[in-house]
Design a protein around this nucleic acid. Structure first.
Lengths: 103, 103
DNA sequence: TTTTGTGGTCATGTTTTTCTGACTTATTGT
DNA sequence: ACAATAAGTCAGAAAAACATGACCACAAAA
């Protein structure tokens, strides 16, 4: 495993980790939908063809963890949760735009 | 029930595939080095810590396939091959720059 | 002649990611 | 009472990505 560095972050390339985190299944899709407005778990499940709970759940959790989405409990009574693009998330919009232009 | 679909082409998001193709192991790293000048198989293997032939080989092949790198045989006698950033590849530089700024 | 270097492929493992189906807590609808 | 919706979790299986070591052709150096 070539363990040679004290800090275990062999990240010579800054884009590497971010890129990996963004590329996960459904993530670009979720991001794109979140740009248009708040998104919800069950709606995403229906909107994203072939998606499944587990993967979507992990995708949302990770997008939240890296600070691109904010999770908000809107109501407890009929449980209602929303995910919104954070400021950091918004700062990624131009990157996506460029990417889409090249795809 | 994860909605069964007749047509199996679920590419609603244009950034999706490109993002996935860029995020593979060593790929951002290779890209970054290719920005600085032509890169070669064996040099990359040494430069990229913990890299292995197989994965690197696949990475180069895929970067070539999606048209980001151009492969050139420089010499046959002592076999010498170079990979250079293509025009499409160069057009991705600003995207990477932005990504690095946010990472 | 054996080793070194370039640029890989191939078969086989291991690891990570993704998928499936069952289950949960709580509320509203029939 | 029973089913449905919301927003998930959990265990296990399948698929995709990644790593390892052997091997190949060819050339040059020791």
């Amino acid at each position: 495993m070539t363990t040679k560095n004290t800090t275990d972050t062999n990240e010579t390339c800054p884009a590497q980790s971010l890129l990996k985190q963004l590329a996960g299944k459904y993530k670009p899709e979720v991001f794109r939908l979140a740009v248009e407005g708040p998104v919800r778990f069950s709606s995403l499940l229906k909107q994203i063809e072939g998606s499944n709970k587990q993967t979507l759940s992990v995708a949302l959790k990770e997008l939240e963890e890296i600070g691109l989405l904010d999770k908000t409990v809107i109501q407890l009574k009929p449980l209602h949760i929303e995910y919104n693009l954070s400021e950091k998330g918004k700062s990624l919009i131009p990157v996506f735009k460029q990417l889409e232009g090249l795809a």
